[in-house]
Design a protein around this nucleic acid. Structure first.
Lengths: 337, 337
DNA sequence: CTGTTAGCGCTTTCAT
DNA sequence: ATGAAAGCGCTAACAG
């Protein structure tokens, strides 16, 4: 039923070694052999058994990518970037979604380890340095994505979230806003803390008197954004912030949705709004949303490139690649007339 | 360096067979052995070598999912649904993006076949029945996603695109629109043809005199939608359609973006607009976009469930599961005042 | 350049 | 209930 390299060899009238060489080192084989083996492969419909190959060689040609939120277009762009780079090296990417669930994070890491993936890209949720170190002991390099690794134990590719938070808040202040609110959470997500820290710094070091309150959410989702927006609406108008910095665009979209429900349209006249990531849907929103742009595609590409370099040379010193976010100002933070 | 079942056996003072049994059939092993093997596993940090296991048993615990467009939130929801179901069975999903490229479609199918995945979910682009049949010959079941298989050779889970197209057009007609335009393409995508066919049927069988023109795009993307919208804008106002049915929400978002560029805001007053899929961003658009909702999550779940059933019983007769799309009417198709 | 052959680590008989 | 041993399909080392 199942065609093995043996069958191909018999059909082509050569040895299994030759067939293997045709597959792996064609230049060490005569043209004649190549032709006959190819013919046999086509005739028999042979497909190499990757398990056997891996058992022998010890590594696979897949890279695992543990993603924080598979429904966030930002991450999909990052994956896309990694994929682009991977396909150039004949590598496929196995994507595992954790949805901010540590148990699933574990599950996928275990799976990848069993599968002896060539390397792991991960946008980590909790603190899993230990787990990742074990992977590396097993010769499986790890590159952190969308998150720095201050201790420098792992290579990381990310955007400078602190700078991004600062720039976002500075932009709001420059537009004349003074009562800022940061909407986001949970705070055990490093990116969230960093963005808030940056914003806080900007407010504290501003030339003008301004305040920053925190409106915490349970996740970075549209739904949580909607809920946060409602909480703002419930307040008497005088006590509302005059600007909202959402931890990412999904939250921003949610906030916008509540704030403009019923045609009230408070944005940007009464409340300015800025998000983070600059997903493509931010520009198409009811009120085009300002955002801190991250080079998502480039992040994915770079991460994969570094990963492959570490595969090639395990002794490589981990390096941190930091992209600078860029302000994309749109209608949602236009100054009041 | 790398810990094998042999090392565990030695450490625990049992044979490799027993270790294997502890791992796979714990009830055929004495409690004492289980305890000692467990201890040894923990101490040594043993991780099963999936390649060896697979070589022996012949199947893996992954399912491949060949996706048409990884950046379409609709597909991400479908993947999510499949993942939910998969994680319940200890199965991981390997996602491959084709971006409507037949070559990449091939590539991923080859890869999955080499990897002996447990089964394949696929939203196919071209006609690859032959290729899929070969997979099935190799005991790899295939379930089509988001696309029916009229010949009934494969199980399929999809939304009734013809009905959806019909309902969308009927809705536009009911809002008093008469000059409809279908924006979408390419037409070798089955879903696109079906949606158009449904719309055409509705127009031809309407009580009123109405027309339907086709504005073809090269892909179902926001960019292509933008381009199509521009072409509409270039016409003299009298020759523009008074309603646009976009083949999916990405295209609809693009069309909306051109039509409302420069603050002209033709939607819905002059041109009504409806999309397909009801991705979450449709509701948050500049003008909330009406759409034909597909139960994306349920589609993914169902597809995976059927796939696993076919894994268990390869003789199963293929079945077609069809969901009915639901109209979600929003501002973009509000009747003219 | 080609053929022969030894395992990679695991599961699964088959004895015991 | 446990141990011994065969062998899954492949690659790489070696001999020719």
């Amino acid at each position: 039923m199942v065609v093995s390299i043996r069958d191909v060899a018999r059909e082509a009238g050569v040895s299994v070694g030759t067939v293997s060489n045709v597959l792996n080192k064609p230049d060490e084989v005569s043209a004649d052999s190549i032709a006959r083996v190819q013919a046999a492969i086509d005739k028999l419909g042979y497909v190499r058994n990757d398990a056997a190959r891996r058992l022998r060689v010890g590594v696979s040609s897949t890279v695992g990518f543990v993603v924080l939120d598979g429904r966030n277009p930002f991450f999909n762009e990052v994956v896309r970037g990694a994929e682009d780079e991977a396909s150039r090296h004949g590598i496929a990417i196995l994507v595992g979604n954790t949805d901010e669930d540590p148990a699933r994070e574990q599950l996928y890491l275990d799976l990848f380890e069993e599968q002896q993936v060539r390397g792991v890209l991960i946008s980590p949720y909790g603190d899993i340095t230990r787990r990742l170190e074990r992977l590396r002991e097993r010769q499986i390099p790890v590159v952190l994505v969308d998150r720095m690794n201050p201790e420098g134990r792992f290579s990381a590719v990310a955007t400078d979230s602190v700078a991004g938070g600062r720039m976002a808040a500075e932009h709001l202040l420059a537009q004349g806003r003074r009562r800022l609110a940061f909407v986001g959470g949970p705070f055990d997500m490093r990116q969230v803390r960093d963005r808030l820290d940056g914003a806080r710094w900007a407010v504290e070091n501003a030339d003008v008197a301004a305040s920053l309150e925190v409106i915490a959410t349970d996740a970075l989702s549209v739904e949580e954004g909607v809920a946060a927006g409602r909480r703002i609406l419930e307040r008497p108008p005088g006590q509302r912030p005059d600007a909202v910095f959402a931890a990412n665009d999904l939250v921003a979209l949610g906030v916008l949705q509540s704030l403009s429900a019923g045609g009230s349209l408070l944005v940007p006249e009464q409340i300015a709004l800025i998000g983070f990531d600059d997903i493509s849907f931010a520009a198409a929103a009811a009120v085009p949303i300002s955002s801190m742009q991250q080079p998502a595609r480039a992040i994915g590409q770079t991460a994969l490139r570094i990963l492959l370099e570490e595969v090639g040379d395990p002794g490589l010193i981990p390096r941190q690649t930091v992209f600078r976010p860029e302000l994309v100002a749109r209608a949602s933070t236009r100054p009041r007339p």
